[in-house]
Simulated scan of single mutants.
Amino acid sequence: MQGNLNEIDICSILQLIELGQRTGQLWVRASSSHHHNKLGGEGASIYRPKQESWFVFFLNGQIIYCQEGESSLSRINDYLRHYRVETRLTDKQIASLLPTDAPEYAYLWALLERNIINPKIAGSIIQGLVHETLFDLLSLCQGNFIFHQGVALAPQLNTFEIAPFVAKITKQLQEWKQLYPHIQSPEQLPVLSDKVQLQSSLPEATVNRLQHWADGKTSLRQLARYLNRDILTVAKAIYPYVQQSWLQLVYLETDKLDTHTDTWELQGKPKGRIVCIDDAIAIGETINSILQPQGYEAIALSDPLEALSLVFQLKPDLILCDIAMSKLEGHEVCAMLRHSTAFRLTPIIMLTGKDGFIDRVKARMVGATDYLTKPFTDTELLMLVEKYINNQ
């Protein structure tokens, strides 16, 4: 069994495996946005897709284990930190596990066999890893999959029924969507942005805990592992502080964005910072090639969900946003930005390939400032940008 997630979703695939009581492994591959620097010219920052993959192992229609494609073992080490397990395998012992089909799973069993952890801890870690992997998989809309029927992963510590997991995580994903635009990804890293306000509004113990975890180096997902909580619980706990702008959520790559800013400051302050949100990378590159020679700083973001977080850090003078995007429509992006006081007055220009009356009406209804039809000329783009940046 194999195919495309545009044709059949992960939930349906899991149901088929459960109903057929299949044994084997499911491999899923999908693209996610990844930051690369200085593409499309100096001062441009573009998010390009990288490939991610996951493996899910089954026995008679039940899940044995889930593993990320990279198999770095860091996930398990994060859980071991929660259980205060200090002893680890030697590099030589770890190297012997890597050629196996599931090195993470082999690593857990090696810890068990050496009495470094007990079966209860191992079972809890496995359940946590299955939960977080399914959370990622069930949120996918695009990608490819292959189910290979074969011998089960062995030995088995425990197995999990699919239906209860899917029902629970589906409900969590619905709640997770309510946290947009403030929280979008488990890979975001919390950072203290207003310590003074935190100290004046919260108990000292709470501030100390936030200061300990919000170090800009620990992702929400790592926090969930350290605390042995699911990602939604952690996200909801910090949501009020993010909403108040006392905490800021960043991506690991944002240090590169800071490098861009420094570069521009050395060269002389640009006329304005313009963010383009469009999942067509070529559009971002085109816009940069037009604006950068005119003295503007252009930053292209190809993932609308990540863009919703990054614009809070970038504080653009103007936003260009495509209407038709696969992950999130431009109308939704615009509406979410307008709900934040930070972007109530920021000019937002909608880009579309359709010159239709309905699109224009929708754009105005969600608070768009203006509208630009693709393909556009250099002059058309520059006139709009100059019109709204000079009027601020």
Rank of each mutant, 00 (worst) to 15 (best):
S201C: 00
L202D: 00
L202M: 04
L202R: 02
L202Q: 00
V207Y: 10
R209K: 14
Q211N: 15
W213S: 05
D215L: 07
G216F: 04
T218A: 05
S219Y: 04
Q222W: 01
A224H: 06
L232S: 02
V234Q: 01
A237S: 08
A237D: 14
Y241M: 02
Q243K: 10
Q244F: 00
Q244G: 00
W246E: 10
V250T: 15
Y251I: 06
Y251K: 09
L252R: 06
T254S: 11
K256Y: 05
T259H: 05
H260G: 07
H260I: 14
T261C: 04
D262C: 10
P270Y: 04
I274S: 00
I277L: 11
I277C: 00
I277Y: 05
D278M: 04
A280F: 05
A280M: 03
A282Y: 03
I283E: 14
G284D: 02
E285M: 15
I287W: 07
I287R: 11
N288C: 12
S289Q: 12
S289K: 06
Q292H: 08
Q292E: 01
P293W: 00
Q294K: 15
Q294C: 06
G295E: 02
A300E: 11
A300I: 08
A300Q: 09
A300T: 10
L301N: 11
S302Y: 02
D303I: 10
